[in-house]
């Protein structure tokens, strides 16, 4: 059987699985990178968000065949992205996380948002993050962390 090549955090992998296998489970169960989380499997919670190049995508809605040859960054490789540290530090400083399970998805989405729009309005933040779910209710702190990350990135 043929195998599919994907690149995750700069590492090339040959994956033996059906074409319709969601990238989420390839990353978690086959490659063993568990920082990318399963939450819904229907693209409504955002926990499985990864970056394809610099674009956030739902790994549960991306099939292996669609991922062939593409390069992905997960939370484990996130620190290599320019400006990632500003987001991670802001998250720690604003004490965003409670259980923390959903936060990788938020972080990657926010990093991409700040790349497109260094000073996003509240409205844009809401539109961008409305399909991310946090059951611990960390949204007010995520808003604050975004402002903090934006100002520290702007200051660089």
């Amino acid at each position: 059987m043929s195998s599919t090549e994907i690149i995750v955090n700069g590492v090339h992998h040959l994956v033996d699985a059906d074409d319709d296998t969601p990238l989420l489970w390839v990353i978690r169960d086959i490659l063993g990178l568990t920082g990318t989380k399963y939450g819904c499997g229907e693209g409504s919670c955002g926990a499985c968000t990864v970056l394809e190049a610099d674009e956030p995508v739902r790994s549960c809605q991306t099939n292996l065949s669609e991922a062939a040859g593409l390069s992905y960054t997960t939370i484990e490789g996130f620190a290599e992205k320019p400006g990632a540290d500003a987001c991670q530090s802001a998250w720690v400083e604003e004490e965003v996380s409670q259980c923390g399970y959903c936060q990788a998805g938020f972080l990657l989405e926010v990093w991409a948002l700040l790349g497109r729009k260094p000073e996003p309005t509240d409205d844009l933040v809401e539109k961008t993050l409305n399909d991310h779910i946090c059951r611990c209710g960390t949204y007010p702190r995520i808003r604050r962390a975004i402002r903090r990350a934006a100002s520290s990135r702007g200051g660089k």
Binding site: Y38, E76, F78, Q88, V92, E95, S97, Q98, G100
Partner: peptide, 21 residues
């Protein structure tokens, strides 16, 4: 005081039940 595992969480290093391998 800040949460003990806050830095692990933002680096994808916090291991939950579903992450057991």
């Amino acid at each position: 005081r800040k949460r003990r595992n806050a830095a692990d969480i933002v680096r994808g290093r916090a291991i939950y039940g579903i992450d057991v391998r």
